[in-house]
């Protein structure tokens, strides 16, 4: 589904990502973990096109997407959430989801004019599904900025889902959530996997990662130090070193 080969990103002297390789298979939940500053978010930003790689290849469904414009990557089937929530706070919850209706699937359903200057009618059903899934239906008409923190995280997820991606990139979706919310998230991720989504999950919350992922890639200082099933990774001494060594 997604393959990264020799990916490198330098910011001036900082080697945020320093030559990593991994491949995500269709239908799996793939974990990307590592201590703070190890280059996880940078990797997602590279895949989504917010940064251009210094070196390396990003293949999505066999196609090199390095030259694909950022906004077009969504229509290829890549949707993401942000670690530091980035919602359109002055739009309503409903409108936030409406923004993500740019995938080819939506194009087939409504013509150009209807999609851009049409009213809400033709999007209503799809969006209410996404809202139901994230448990935000009762807040559809509230401004996104007025939501509680946990709700904002869920809205980020819903917005990514509204784009009907093939691959979901979740950057620390559990950050700042309480135990109950994390349990819900766990359940949602499993449901999404059943529905056929492929997921890249970045998380610091180890219990969640170990519970939902099929395979995990561990980064440290921009390099891959381990890859394998949760059990293999947990047993890996290099991983322990990395985490204990940085005090996390």
């Amino acid at each position: 589904m997604l393959e990264v080969r020799g990916l490198v990103k330098h910011f001036g002297g900082v080697r945020a990502v320093d030559g990593i390789d991994f491949a995500i298979r269709p239908g799996e939940v793939f974990g990307l973990i590592g201590p703070n500053g190890s280059g996880k978010s940078t990797t997602v930003n590279l895949v989504c096109g917010l940064y251009a790689p210094t070196q390396g290849q990003i293949l999505f469904q066999g196609q090199d997407i390095a030259r694909v414009a950022t906004h077009k990557r969504l229509s290829l089937g890549l949707a993401r959430t942000f670690q530091n929530i980035r919602l359109f706070t002055n739009l309503t919850v409903w409108e936030n989801l409406w923004m993500a209706e740019n995938a080819p699937a939506h194009r087939a359903e409504a013509g150009f004019l209807k999609r851009w200057v049409g009213g809400r009618g033709n999007a209503r059903e799809r969006i209410s599904q996404a809202l139901e899934f994230s448990g935000l239906a009762h807040r559809a008409d509230d401004l996104a900025g007025s939501l509680a923190f946990g709700e904002q995280r869920r809205l980020e997820l819903a917005r990514a889902l509204a784009a009907r991606p093939r691959l979901l990139l979740l950057d620390e979706p559990a950050a700042g959530m309480n135990a109950e919310e994390i349990a819900q998230l766990d359940e949602r991720i499993r449901m999404l996997q059943q529905q056929g989504y492929t997921i890249l999950l970045i998380e610091h919350h180890m219990e969640l990662v170990m519970a939902v992922t099929d395979r995990i890639c561990v980064l440290n200082f921009g390099r891959k130090i381990a890859e394998g099933t949760p059990a293999q990774v947990q047993a890996d001494p290099a991983v322990r070193d990395a985490y204990l060594g940085t005090g996390a």
Partner: peptide
């Protein structure tokens, strides 16, 4: 309005 508010997020939801 979405573009006016957050260009980065707007790009990420596929807006040109």
């Amino acid at each position: 309005r979405a573009v006016g508010e957050d260009e980065l997020a707007a790009q990420s939801v596929g807006l040109n």
